[in-house]
């Protein structure tokens, strides 16, 4: 089974200072100075894929792992980690323009690579990623490929005829069997951390690089893809969530609790 995980690297938005949440030129938020992280759902997907390969290998099913990202050079260190962890295929597609708010174009690139280059059977994605947070890329990829799609996936296990997948459906936890080729979009999986490679593995695979491709290399004309789904960001607004933020007095937990109780808690509970 050829497994391909699509991941995105983003600035660590939680490390941004409060004052930085303003729209700068080109409707972006200044975030160059913070560290880069794997999108949290994609991190789950990358680890789930490693575990799925282990489970398949145990059943004597051959499985290969690939990783794909549409993004800039900031993605490279993450590919090094993935190589060290045993991902044997890796590709980065560098678009001419930022695609943060262009899920349809992103999906076209991912699907074209999966189909024409990688010939993948199973695509793992995350259920959403910043800054666009559209949550539509997995369904758009599935639509491009004509494959079924399961979203909000939390567990994946091989079974006789396919994969047993658990997901958080709108109406509750759902498990189902799906046969590749298919797209799985990972949600709140309990498996949320990518394992850390050993130094030996890092050194052994330090010369591996991700293939660098342009959209044209996978047969996608980005200008056409962008024009085909015209959704444009017109501006960003700050959300005002401020409340009074009164810091209560007190030196001990008991004193603080009494102050909270007297000033806010008792009245809030009593209110009809």
């Amino acid at each position: 089974m050829r497994i391909l995980v699509c991941f995105k690297v983003t600035p660590d938005y939680e490390a941004l200072r409060d004052a930085d949440w303003v729209a700068g030129p080109g409707d972006t938020v200044r975030s160059r100075y913070v560290r880069r992280v794997l999108n949290c759902f994609d991190e789950s997907a990358l680890e789930l894929a490693l575990r799925l390969r282990e489970a398949l290998t145990e059943r004597e099913v051959a499985a290969g792992l690939g990783a794909l990202s549409v993004g800039g050079r900031e993605t490279e260190p993450f590919f090094a980690t993935l190589h060290a962890l045993g991902y044997e295929r890796a590709a980065r597609i560098e678009p001419e323009a930022a695609l943060d708010y262009a899920p349809a174009a992103t999906a076209a690139l991912l699907a074209a690579y999966a189909q024409r280059f990688d010939r993948s059977d199973l695509l793992l994605l995350g259920s959403r990623c910043g800054p666009g947070d559209s949550g539509t890329v997995p369904a758009l990829v599935a639509e491009e490929l004509g494959w079924p799609c399961v979203t909000q996936v939390t567990e994946i296990e091989p079974t006789g005829g396919g994969l047993r997948v658990t997901c958080a459906a709108d109406d509750g936890g759902l498990s189902l069997t799906v046969r590749p080729p298919c797209v799985l979009a990972v949600g709140n999986a309990l498996v949320s951390h990518l394992r850390v490679p050993t130094l030996t593995d890092r050194l052994a695979r330090r010369d591996l690089r991700a293939d660098l491709l342009a959209p044209g290399d996978v047969g996608v004309d980005l200008a056409v893809a962008l024009a085909g789904a015209p959704v444009t960001l017109e501006g960003l607004e700050r959300i005002d969530r401020t409340r009074a933020g009164v810091v209560v007095e007190g030196d001990t937990p008991a004193e603080m609790a009494r102050a909270l109780f007297a000033t806010h808690v008792e009245e809030a509970i009593a209110r009809p």
Binding site: R243, A244, G245, V246, V247, V248, A257
Partner: peptide, 28 residues
């Protein structure tokens, strides 16, 4: 005291979460 939640709440105690909530439970 610099956590974002401070400005997002109506009232804040700067202290240990477990201890203050346990003390609060005794009052409610």
């Amino acid at each position: 005291e610099h956590a974002a939640i401070v400005g997002e709440a109506d009232a804040v105690a700067v202290g240990d979460g477990v201890a203050v909530v346990e003390a609060l439970a005794g009052l409610v």
